[in-house]
Simulated assay, not measured.
Amino acid sequence: MAETVQAATLRADVAIIGAGPAGLFAAFECGMLRLGTVLIDALDETGGQCAALYPEKPIYDIPAHPAIEAGALVAALEQQIAPFAVPRLLGRRIERLQGSRGAFSLGTDHGDSIHARAVIIAAGAGAFGPNRPPLPGLAAYEQTGSVQYYVRRKEAFHGKRLVIAGGGDSAIDWALELREIALHITLIHRRAKFRAAPERLAQLEAASGPGGPIELVVPYQLHALHGDGGTLASVEVATLEGDRRRIEADHLLAFFGLSTDLGPVSQWGLQSALHHIQVAPSTCETSLPGVFAIGDVATYPGKLKLILQGFSEGAMAAHAIHPIVHPHTALHFEYSTSKGAPGSRDAPGSLAGAGHAPRPAAA
């Protein structure tokens, strides 16, 4: 994996904002077309939500992988772009975009300056954070890890009493995923109806039956936390009618969704709809020529919010960018089997043949 670049001025063919799965694969597709890239992300690591929120959660709809953990997917994508030595600016937030198609200038909140001929926005839903329940003393329990909003390591909950709060996919998925690891799981929701795929609901019903590993407590909401010095002892829940109940617990996992913010990107004048950037379906170009958007942040008729769709969009954007960077060179489409392995001296996308690798700008 290429090292994180310190505050600097960089020149690249393509600046990719967002280093989640879609951004990482876009860097690969660009590399195969002799387009040098730089990755910029507000997180301190690549992988986006896959790395930050659920690295051990299995994903079932990645082609050729019946199941692959999110963290393993990110590692494989990193390995795939390793031959291109893609630099990345992590823990940085893009604050400024100036210029036009073929000559953009971007600035980060750390003072970095990036000059690029095209831009790909692969920012997912933008910068994200958990929606926290309004409970007294919450911060103390967050600091000790008694209250968490993401599952980074499943083994951390081995033999623990868990209270999981929420009624959507994340709450149900993790209740089912952790049922064989935790000592006991109590699933709290404000109503008896859950929001998830029918298959998962059927699994939940089976797991929450008599003697099952999951106990459903509905319709209840979180009311208070009880413990000492940030160490959780029990979670108090209540109904709208005021009935209360205490549940012994070592950890509370609260899944109430994420608050997301595109930040300065939303001020760039790009045509948008419902907080998503509208793009041309055939190229993923936005209303600003030379700026493209892929992955969850992009929208168009028929859009599916799937990682594999983001991969496809990364490929389309890279091919649409090629004539911007190489206006006098025809792009003859070839399959990767014809191009050769990335990094091999004869491969058109290899470092040996790349004519526009990202580089520090001259002072």
Rank of each mutant, 00 (worst) to 15 (best):
E56R: 04
Y300H: 13
T239N: 11
A318N: 00
G91S: 03
H223C: 10
H115Y: 15
G23C: 01
T299P: 11
S312K: 13
K303V: 14
F25K: 01
D44C: 12
L43F: 06
L39V: 10
A361I: 12
E215W: 02
I81L: 09
P55Q: 05
T329Q: 11
L201K: 02
D61H: 10
E56L: 12
E155L: 07
L225I: 07
H332V: 12
P360G: 09
E45N: 15
G242R: 05
E241Y: 05
R132F: 04
A8W: 11
V325W: 03
D13S: 15
G102S: 03
Y150I: 01
P327F: 02
G242C: 08
G269Q: 02
L270P: 01
A67L: 07
T186E: 07
L162P: 00
K154R: 12
C50V: 10
R244C: 13
G263F: 02
P63R: 13
I120C: 11
A67Y: 13
A238C: 09
V119P: 06
L225E: 10
A318L: 00
V235P: 04
V279C: 04
A52I: 12
L331M: 07
R244I: 12
I324W: 00
G349I: 09
L73G: 09
Q143P: 01
V119S: 11
V74F: 01
P281N: 12
S100Y: 02
E236H: 14
Q148L: 14
F256W: 07
L232W: 01
C50Q: 09
L262F: 06
H115L: 11
D261E: 10
K303T: 11
R359S: 15
P219K: 01
P21T: 04
R34D: 15
G18S: 03
L77C: 08
A122F: 02
A22P: 01
